[in-house]
């Protein structure tokens, strides 16, 4: 990068993260998950298993931490000394947050994970050599490694018919993670191109959002100001880019937060805090 280049394109290189930083985005897909209406039913996780050819690993391997659930529903209990422990667990569906400044990307030795013009963290299975640096560098722990070849175990003969042909069955030794259902995004884009119209909100629906019985998961493009997810982000005062100031919790209605926002990884998933009876 020469000095001339910097001087000539100064405004481009100084573009802030909210405008996309050094990326040329076409879309920035994002989610908004309302934990207040999430019942923790695990339908999203099940849908993800079915959609993305995820292997069911069995009890022993699950205990060894080798489960392959791209979307897991985490449970958190109030402490026993807390006010109302009998209220039960708090649930949070946790999948790849498709960070704008992803920590997994720069550590990959072979560039198997990279940022797409859609604002997603892509994982290219053919290129992955299984170094697992990305998983170790992910603050959310949402990358899953194929320690085994699950093809024979997980899908014995007739079950193979249920595999989704729109994405590959990963083999031993590669890393994988939530893709925001890239195959559905691709199909929706092809469809909109065929009909010669721009992609509109609602064209793409991820498997988890489709399966959610309470519509807690909303998926969309934050670069489209009219999309449901942009409106939700704006309403709860969540913006792209790094966190600049500690949010003032003035309004009870503003419940939005991003997990580990303080790490400035710019996650694409906004959660809406659960409202407990005691807090109302």
């Amino acid at each position: 990068m020469s000095l001339k280049n910097i001087l000539e394109n100064f405004s481009y290189y100084r573009r802030d993260a909210e405008a996309g930083g050094h990326h040329e985005y076409e879309h920035r897909f994002a989610m908004a998950i309302d934990l207040d209406i999430c019942t923790g039913c695990n339908a999203c996780s099940t849908a993800c298993y079915a959609e993305n050819n995820l292997p069911v690993v069995g009890k022993e391997r699950f205990e060894a931490g080798q489960a392959m659930h791209w979307l897991r529903v985490e449970r958190y209990w109030d402490e026993i000394e807390g006010d109302y422990p009998e209220q039960g667990a708090k649930m949070i569906p946790m999948m790849c947050q498709q960070c704008g400044a992803a920590t997994c990307e720069p550590v990959c030795p072979v560039a198997a994970t990279y940022h797409t013009p859609d604002g997603l963290n892509a994982q290219v299975y053919n290129r992955c050599i299984g170094s697992r640096y990305c998983s170790n560098n992910c603050p959310f722990r949402v990358r899953y490694f194929n320690f085994w070849s699950y093809y024979e175990d997980s899908w014995p003969e007739p079950l193979r018919m249920q595999l989704n042909p729109d994405l590959s069955v990963r083999d031993k030794g590669v890393m994988e993670k939530c893709t925001f259902c890239i195959q559905r995004i691709r199909n929706a884009k092809d469809k909109s191109q065929r009909e010669e119209r721009p992609l509109v909100d609602g064209d793409i629906i991820t498997a988890c959002a489709q399966a959610c019985p309470t519509d807690a998961i909303v998926f969309g493009d934050t670069m489209d100001p009219e999309s449901r997810v942009s409106k939700a982000w704006a309403k709860h005062q969540i913006h792209r880019g790094p966190v600049t100031a500690k949010k003032q919790k003035a309004d009870e209605e503003i419940r939005g937060y991003r997990v580990f926002d303080e790490l400035n990884v710019d996650p694409s998933v906004m959660y809406l805090e659960r409202v407990r009876d005691t807090e109302v």
């Binding site: 892509a122 290219v124 299975y125 053919n126 994405l167 890239i182």
Partner: peptide, 8 residues
């Protein structure tokens, strides 16, 4: 030229 345009 994007990987994910062709690889799945």
């Amino acid at each position: 030229g994007d990987c994910w345009k062709c690889h799945k």
